[in-house]
Every structure is written in structure tokens, then in C-alpha cells.
């Protein structure tokens, strides 16, 4: 069986550490290695994951790589995704697709021009509790959604990678980091688009660690008048039982549905450890996401999550930061994607 040659572009994002295993688990994939300009990352992660490493783009291309996962700092997504598309590589890009709508648009155009598949890494689309709720909703089992309350809260990601808290590299703080997941889920669940965004934020939790906003609340209105809210805060303290979580409440004409994407845990109480730990046992959404990316390429079809989905979420973040600045609800500037 011919296998698809897939590589990783940059190990800046910690998710690369998970994706490398996911790629190796997929029998249709031949993992070729990762390219990274940073020698420390090449040495550290190349050794830790026994991975081939490439220090320049041309030698990476010479490996015969056919598809990539872009895991760079957010601000460099555009540079790498466009370079990959121009080289004829299919692209799975870490979220947010870009740090502003213009860049996201350019990535989509480049992929279209090159005729390659472009997918945004929204693993929550593959989270089993969310998928199950979405399926029941689609069958009418919950009634129709009239509003949504959601929260995607976490610890400050600085300890994983320092660039997450540098707005120049990340494209923002907690509001950019966490709003995109729920914005995408809301579009997926409602099949509606956003009209306006009102957002407020602050920097109180983790203020000694982060140069960006760490707390944020976002109120959204869909074009059909329905409303929703997002808590995107890095409000989980150092000794929270896990990294954070994502949960939403669908308010429908038949009641409400609470969905917790990360409640499938075993609680661990230790003698040595001073704090409770939650060990996750739910299904690995990253695996299902990467399997879909690979399947879409092999089946020559559009992935179930697209570049446009990535752009729509970036447009919400853009409107959210404009609203923080103006103190008013701001219109979502929706670009046409042909």
C-alpha cells in the first residue's frame, strides 16, 4: 500500500508532540520528520520523539513529503502554510488559522490556487461528547438551539511555550487562543454565521506570567438574531487538576443540554502530590482529526473542517479585539470565500 508522506512544520506549538504520535498511529501515513529553523527544538524534540529532523525547507521537500501539519508560532502560520501550498503540499494548520483575517484569507487563496487540501486544526470537531451531542441535535433530539453559553478555560500556557503569552507571536492573548474553538463549535452546531461581537477582557489571573490578556468574556450575535457567549479565560490556576476544559450549554426550545468535552477523567489523589489530578480517558480527538485530514487527501475530497472554518473563527477574534478597544459591539467583517 502506498502511504501518504506527512511531515510537521515547526515544533513551536506543543500540539506537535501529540500529532507526531497520531501520524505514526495512522497506517496510511509515512511520517517523514519535522522541519524547524530552531536548532534547540530540532535537538530536543528530534531526540525525544526519535524523529528525523530537517533544518532547511528544501531538504524537507526533498524527503518527498506530500502533506504537512503547520505547528509554528501563530504569526508564522501564513508564511509556512503558503510556502507548503506553493510546493504542492496539503496543509493541516494549527488553530488559529492566522493572527488576522487578511492572513487567513491569503492562506485559503494560496491553497486554492495550488489545488491542495487545507484543513484547520479544530480537534473539538472530533471530540466524542461533542460529536454525539451534535448528532442528536441534528436528528432533532434536543429541539432547536435558541442560544449557547460556553467556556473554554485553561491555565496560562506560558509554561508549555513562552510565545503563547507574547501577543506579537500569538496574535493576542487568551481571547485569541480560546475564542476560536467555541466560535467554530457554535457555527458547527447552529449552521449560522456571526453578525456582531461584544467583548471585555483583563489581565489579572497569571498577570506576572503573561504580557497579554488572560481573562475574557465574549458575547456573540448570529445573523438570525440568536445569541451566545464565550468565556475564553486563562482562569485555571497552577494546581488545577488538569490543563483546563471546554464545556457548553445549549439552550433550546425543549430545555438545555450541558456538554463537557473533557469530563471523561479519573480523579487521582496522591500522597506525594499535593493536588488532585484528572487523568483523561476520553477518546483522542487529535487522532480522529488527523485521520480525517489523511482520508480527505487520499479520497480526494474536501476535509470536513476547512480553511474557511478557520477564517470565520479568526474573524470573530478580530471583531472581539476591536470591541475591547471600542467598548461597543463590533460587526464581524465576513469575507466572501469562493
Amino acid at each position: 500500500m502506498k502511504r501518504l508522506k506527512v511531515g510537521i512544520v515547526s515544533f513551536a506549538h506543543l500540539h506537535a508532540e501529540a500529532y507526531i504520535g497520531n501520524l505514526r498511529n495512522n497506517p496510511a501515513v509515512e511520517y517523514v520528520g519535522f522541519v524547524d529553523e530552531d536548532s534547540e527544538r530540532r535537538n530536543t524534540y528530534g531526540a525525544a520523539y526519535e524523529s528525523a529532523v530537517f533544518d532547511d525547507w528544501q531538504s524537507f521537500l526533498d524527503s518527498g513529503v506530500e502533506a504537512v501539519i503547520v505547528c509554528s508560532e501563530n504569526v508564522y502560520h501564513k508564511r509556512y502554510a503558503i510556502a507548503a501550498a506553493k510546493a504542492g503540499l496539503h496543509v493541516l494548520c494549527e488553530k488559529p488559522l492566522a493572527t488576522n483575517p487578511d492572513d487567513a484569507d491569503e492562506i485559503i487563496s494560496a491553497a486554492r490556487t495550488a489545488g491542495v487540501r487545507l484543513m484547520t486544526a479544530f480537534p473539538m470537531r472530533f471530540n466524542m461528547p461533542l460529536r454525539t451531542a451534535h448528532a442528536t441535535l441534528a436528528q432533532g433530539g434536543y429541539g432547536t438551539i435558541t442560544s449557547i453559553i460556553g467556556r473554554n478555560q485553561g491555565q496560562c500556557p506560558k509554561r508549555h511555550r513562552a510565545w503563547f503569552v507574547d501577543p506579537d507571536l500569538a496574535g493576542g492573548g487568551a481571547m485569541a487562543d480560546h475564542t476560536v474553538h467555541l466560535a467554530d463549535i457554535y457555527r458547527w452546531f447552529t449552521t449560522a454565521e456571526f453578525e456582531t461581537v461584544y467583548a471585555i477582557n483583563n489581565r489579572i489571573t497569571w498577570r506576572d506570567e503573561a504580557g497579554s490578556d488572560t481573562g475574557g468574556l465574549v458575547a456573540l450575535r448570529f445573523t438570525d438574531g440568536r445569541s451566545a457567549s464565550v468565556d475564553c479565560s486563562w482562569s485555571r490556576p497552577r494546581h488545577y487538576p488538569t490543563w483546563g476544559g471546554l464545556a457548553l450549554r445549549l439552550i433550546t426550545d425543549r430545555g438545555t443540554v450541558d456538554i463537557d468535552a473533557f469530563r471523561q477523567v479519573v480523579s487521582v489523589h496522591g500522597h506525594a502530590s499535593k493536588h488532585l489530578r484528572w487523568d483523561y480517558w476520553g477518546s483522542d480527538a487529535n487522532q480522529a482529526m488527523i485521520d480525517e485530514f489523511v482520508a480527505a487527501i487520499l479520497d480526494e475530497r474536501t476535509p470536513t473542517v476547512t480553511g474557511e472554518d478557520g477564517l470565520r473563527a479568526v474573524e470573530v477574534v478580530d471583531a472581539a479585539y476591536r470591541s475591547v478597544a471600542s467598548g461597543r459591539p463590533e460587526k464581524v467583517h465576513r469575507r466572501s470565500v469562493t
Partner: peptide, 18 residues
Amino acid sequence: ASIDRGSDVSGRLAPHAH
């Protein structure tokens, strides 16, 4: 604030506000 009183699809419902 926002008050959800139902949608065009659902008709008028008991309110849910945030």
C-alpha cells in the same frame, strides 16, 4: 446583556438571559 426569548423557529419561550 442578552435575553433569549426563543427564535423565529421555536416561537416565544420562557426567557434565558446572560
